[in-house]
Amino acid sequence: MLREGVIVMQSIIEVEGLEKLYKKKRALKNISFQVKQGEIFGFLGPSGSGKTTTVKILTSQLLYTSGRVKVLGSDPARSRHSEFLGKIGVLTDNSGTYERLSVYDNLALFCRLYGVADRRIETVLDAVNLNDDKHTLVGRLSKGMKQRVTLARTILHEPDILFLDEPTSALDPVNSGRIQQTLREMNSRGTTIFLTTHNMQEAEELCDRVAFLNHGEISALDTPQALRLQYGDRSITVTTQQGKQVVQQNDAGANLIRELIQRGDLLAIHSNEPTLGDIFVKLTGRGLE
């Protein structure tokens, strides 16, 4: 929305005080966050932290116990099924494909379910680089190619929000990179992306903001850069002929670096920003795998 030359981004997902109980187990404990339109929002946490439960609630697959949830302006639990699902796309690491049908026939089915013209198939196959294989039976494709077919299917109807649950898990780096590139292109065309992952590198590369989920609670939420600055120890690693040395950003450190430069001993200098994985461990005391 443009207002007096300032871009005001609307919240497309609003979650407030969300709780989910499975019998006596609290899977989500009073979590609150907002996702702005056009944002890539990372929901990070280890297995069992509540990521998939959150995605299921946001995509109307699961009812929540208490709190308030709004996706595209309405509560997913009370939205009109066809209308709501026509505006979102959901991709999980175990989204299935029809293996006895060709890539084209798989997508043609979903074109008709979403009311999209068949010509859109060519566009999405180009996006995931599968146009040469469109007449191949899906059962004959590699795992990475199948994952690209499911991504193509998820973006066929140009959803307003894409929910991606571990989209590149078990993919090789080349295919992961290709899918990430497609996601960036979609995001640049205005699609909001809600990404759950335990792959910190993927989150760092893709996400505008990230939330850390641990045992059903959000322990931090900010941009990756802000989190790195907040939780980094502001040290610097200098590399000399003698090896590497960590120095603090204070007067003593500054003097040491000046001295090394004057002597011509300094080979390299790097700030020691923590990774998102490091920050997660620092905050929660546990790793992400």
């Binding site: 697959q61 029809y98 379910l113």
Partner: peptide
């Protein structure tokens, strides 16, 4: 088979009732 191959979930997440 739809359940086994996780395709029923994909169908139910489309506008198909």
């Amino acid at each position: 088979e739809e359940k086994e191959k996780n395709t029923l979930r994909s169908l139910m997440l489309s506008p198909a009732s």
